[in-house]
Amino acid sequence: MTSNTPLLSLTEVTAGYGAGLVLKGVNLTVERGQIVCVIGPNGSGKSTVLKTVSGLLGVKSGSVRFNGEEISELTSRRRLDLGIVHVPQDRSLFPGMSVHENMMMGAFILTDHKLIAERMERAAELFPIVKVRANALAGSLSGGEQKQVEVARSLMLDPALILLDEPSIGLDPKSRKLVFESVKALAEDGRTILLVEQNARSGLAVSSMGAVLEAGKVALTGRGSDLLDDPEVARLYLGVKAK
């Protein structure tokens, strides 16, 4: 592995559920420290991309390389050990446990108490809610706050790559703002993120790179700001009328 090796690269990846293919030859690269946002219409395979990277779904053909190493045959637990953390679309917190306990669950596979305390402190610096609402039940937080805690919890394993699956889905505008502020905080912390987002405008605005997925293939890639200015992307995904 050289320093030029991308952190994550997908080459001609096909994957799907049962006999059908959802991904039909996806090519995607994520460099270290980048936030790459994948946008696309419903059913284009955005969440499936994340599942093939985290190992929740096996690939049928193609290659998934992490740090230059082929990982498509590894279990999801092994990929977690490599530092790939998946924050799923559905609420993944334990509603009946406190925020602090939820954070501890994020570090469940760790045994070094000092390290856990350090990471908790670091996560609280980025996401003060972890400390401020430490004793509150996770189920009593608003949707946006819960998403913030989920993202903060993902930091407990000091991940090399965070996979964020539609973090703003189903949230009110205020909560959505909180979520994108969380993504910005992660970016400022130098994290590498592969973000899948239905809200294309907000997703691309916080991303360094973007990719448009259509019918299981990457149709377009470019800098987040460039894609925001692209008239075709604007027409299809940003709700701007063609002139």
Partner: peptide, 22 residues
């Protein structure tokens, strides 16, 4: 202890608990 944390997680959502390594 970790066993208590594990049990709380099981009580809250057993499938999720399994997912995080309990």
């Amino acid at each position: 202890s970790k066993i208590g944390l594990s049990l709380s997680a099981i009580r809250s959502d057993e499938d999720k608990a399994h997912g995080v390594g309990v």
